[in-house]
Simulated scan of single mutants.
Amino acid sequence: MKALRFHAAKDLRIEEVAKPGAPGPGQVLIRNRFVGICGTDLHEYSYGPIFIPTAPHPFTGASGPQVLGHEFGGVVEAVGEGVVGLRPGDRVSVQPLIMPRSGDYFADRGLFHLSPQLALAGLSWQGGGMADYCLLHDYNLVKIPDAMTDSEAALVEPTAVAVYACDRGGVRAGSSVLITGAGPIGILTLLAARAAGAARLFLSDINDARLAFARDVVDDIVTINPRRDDPGRVVRARTEGEVGCDVAIECVGNEHALKACLDAVRKQGVVVQTGLHPHENPLDWFQVTFKDVDIRGSWAYPTQYWPRVIGLISSGLLPAKKVVTRTITLDRAVADGFDALLDPAGEQLKILIDLGA
């Protein structure tokens, strides 16, 4: 089968590799349909290996070369012994986290995403979404309804990140929310906050094109370019009592964006850190104490989110497909996908690869 594999930084190759064998007990073979290029994939391509193991992964045994792609969906091809609720022909979305199901402190409490032995399909597993087929566990697959398209199935994973960020922040009906970063996760978080009932939405980014794109997605937001305007001042001027927003969600992994969140949030508000910072960053801890705020991390998502997120997307309450700006073939994935998304002057936001094209 054809697959895109990571060998080293700036070394992605379209190769012919062996198709996975018949699924074993509790396993399912799927034919992949659509896969998204994630920011994590871009970081691996630019600077990796980061999450891709150079020695066998302690749980899965996987190591490079690695088939990329953890935002994907497909069609069930075959099921192994003991698999229930799935059969050949079912359309599915992939929940890519792989970990012990028991005998682990966090797994025993249903907090599978916090397992220290965590692996991901497309990063530290035998396969991923950027190939014709992938062998997975039955717990990695959730059927999608007729109302959901195959391409939307590939958007469940990044949307789950956004929904969890809003949950961590306690976003609810009437909330005022600042989101820093107008990339795919930032705009999906914008949509998730609106779906949760947020009444006042602010979005900060230094890219005016992305801010304009976001206004087309959600037309009543307040956009801020911090190179021209101070996010905290803008947010305070447009919130009740000029006290700041209820929740600020950092979706960049940038020191200045995190500081802007702390400045813009009201006293006893919540700051959620979703973007991955590449190094330690200083924060004004006097303000954290003085403002009596909560600062919460938001790592991935609980694996149980899939039915909920599928429902949000398929019902139209969270129109995730609005973030997609291009669909390409696997043969063009590097030039028209990875390189296009890394182009500072580029206009692409979210690119999907159509494995069936």
Rank of each mutant, 00 (worst) to 15 (best):
M1H: 15
A3H: 06
L4I: 15
F6M: 01
A8C: 02
L12A: 02
E15I: 08
A18I: 11
G24L: 07
P25F: 15
V28A: 04
R31N: 02
T40F: 02
D41E: 15
L42R: 09
L42V: 11
L42S: 11
I50H: 15
F51L: 13
F51Y: 08
I52M: 10
T54R: 03
T54C: 04
P56I: 00
T60I: 13
A62S: 04
S63P: 00
Q66M: 15
G69E: 12
G73V: 12
V76Q: 06
A78I: 10
V83F: 13
V84E: 10
G85N: 07
R87H: 04
G89D: 07
D90P: 08
D90W: 05
R91A: 12
R91I: 03
S93C: 05
S93E: 03
P100A: 00
P100W: 01
G103E: 01
Y105D: 14
Y105E: 15
L111C: 07
F112K: 04
H113I: 01
L114T: 06
P116Q: 10
P116S: 12
L120H: 04
G122C: 13
G122H: 12
C134F: 06
C134Q: 14
L135W: 12
L136S: 03
D138Y: 08
Y139P: 14
N140Q: 05
L141S: 11
K143Y: 00
I144W: 02
P145M: 06
A147Q: 05
M148K: 00
S151P: 03
A153I: 05
L155M: 02
V156M: 03
E157W: 06
P158K: 00
T159H: 05
T159M: 09
A160G: 14
D167W: 03
R168N: 11
R172F: 01
A173G: 00
S175T: 11
L178C: 07
I179P: 09
P184N: 02
L190P: 10
A196D: 13
A196P: 10
A196G: 12
A198L: 14
L203Y: 15
R210Q: 04
D220W: 09
R233C: 07
V234F: 12
V235R: 08
T239W: 09
T239N: 14
E240W: 06
E240V: 02
D246I: 03
V247F: 03
E250C: 09
K259P: 10
A260K: 01
L262Y: 02
D263H: 02
Q268A: 12
V271S: 07
V272G: 10
G275Y: 08
N281S: 11
P282M: 03
L283D: 05
D284A: 06
K291C: 07
D292N: 13
D292Q: 13
D292R: 11
V293F: 11
V293W: 10
R296Q: 12
S298C: 10
T303C: 12
Q304V: 09
W306S: 07
W306A: 06
V309W: 01
V309G: 01
V309N: 01
G311R: 03
I313G: 05
S314P: 02
G316R: 01
K322H: 05
R326G: 14
I328Q: 00
T329I: 09
D331V: 06
D331K: 09
V334R: 05
L342T: 00
L342N: 00
L342Q: 01
A345C: 11
I351L: 03
G356I: 13
G356P: 01
